[in-house]
Amino acid sequence: MSKNPTLLEVSGVSVTFDGFRAINNLSFQIGSAELRAVIGPNGAGKTTMMDIITGKTRPDTGKVTYGRPGKNLLKMNESAIARVGIGRKFQRPSVFESQTVFDNLIMALKKSRSPLDVVFYRRDDSDVSKVEKLAAEIGLADQLQRLSGELSHGQKQWLEIGMLLAQDPQLLLVDEPAAGMTPEEREKTTDILRKAAETRAVVVVEHDMEFVRRLDCRVTVLHEGAVLAEGSIDHVTQDQAVIDVYLGR
């Protein structure tokens, strides 16, 4: 058996919006503990790809399977997909700004969410321990009692990544995490994502090539809704087709 079995398989997926083919026979695989960067020009299909994986968009054709045995994600709604272990971070951070960092993380912990469970929830030492461990992992151990609205843009991004990690996803989709960050924040973000990918799959959609290079992972290049090239950052940046449609711009 492979050391890193396939977690997600997208096979022959196509979707058309008003005559425009946003995804065109797209196929790729993600391993169960892997960091993957997805790059490509605007309109390449990066956001639509994430929408399909998370159930927001239904493709016209193709298959998307997840886990072992493979679950057919195309038969599941968005909340069911989230429950089986797929988390998504959008470009703009979305945190509860009037709550502390600690409260944001404790609310995000993977728990039963029935109305009775929520009403009678009492935090225990193991929950506090999980939050403290998560806060250390995302570089916010010394910010736990701070209101989230007071954090810097980069810190809010880390907090949202932490809130997703609190759900214990096996696949994490992250959209342009480096946007608007200082160089120091970007370096820390690289560390957070690389650490997270030791125990789960992390797919990062990004435009910043310096950030992608620092991730030091396999890169998938999308163009016109299909895979144009795949491999190391050095391999794809030397690919003439990638230079022509993306890097040369």
Rank of each mutant, 00 (worst) to 15 (best):
K3T: 09
N4K: 10
T6N: 05
L7S: 06
L7I: 08
V10K: 15
G12D: 10
S14V: 07
S14Y: 05
T16V: 14
F17P: 01
F17C: 03
D18W: 02
F20L: 12
R21F: 00
I23P: 02
I23S: 03
N24W: 00
L26G: 11
S27Y: 10
S27V: 04
G31F: 13
R36T: 12
A37C: 14
V38F: 11
G40N: 09
G43I: 02
G43P: 02
G45R: 04
G45F: 05
K46T: 01
T47F: 11
T48N: 14
M49Y: 00
M50C: 05
D51A: 07
I52K: 02
T54N: 10
G55T: 06
K56Y: 03
T61Q: 05
K63M: 13
K63S: 12
R68P: 00
R68C: 08
R68F: 07
G70Q: 08
N72H: 14
L73W: 14
N77T: 01
N77Q: 04
E78C: 10
A82W: 04
R83C: 02
R83M: 06
V84W: 07
V84Q: 12
G85Q: 05
I86Q: 08
K89I: 15
F90C: 05
F90W: 11
Q91T: 03
V95F: 12
V95N: 09
F96C: 13
F96A: 12
E97S: 03
S98L: 01
S98E: 00
Q99S: 11
V101W: 10
D103C: 09
N104E: 04
A108P: 00
V118Y: 01
S126K: 11
S126E: 00
V128L: 05
K133E: 09
L134A: 02
I138S: 14
L140H: 06
L140F: 01
A141R: 12
L144D: 04
Q145E: 15
Q145R: 15
R146I: 09
R146C: 07
R146Y: 10
S148A: 15
G154A: 04
Q155D: 15
K156Q: 13
Q157W: 07
W158I: 12
L159P: 12
E160Y: 05
G162R: 14
G162Y: 09
D168G: 01
P169W: 04
L171M: 04
L172F: 15
L173H: 03
D175Q: 01
D175N: 01
P177D: 04
G180Q: 09
M181T: 10
P183I: 06
E185K: 02
D191T: 14
I192W: 14
R194Y: 00
K195H: 11
K195M: 09
E198V: 10
A201R: 11
V203E: 05
V205R: 08
E206R: 15
H207F: 01
E210H: 10
E210K: 12
R213Q: 13
L215V: 13
D216T: 00
D216Y: 06
D216R: 04
R218K: 15
V221E: 05
L222K: 11
A226F: 00
S232L: 05
D234V: 09
Q240V: 06
V242P: 02
V245S: 13
Y246S: 08
G248E: 00
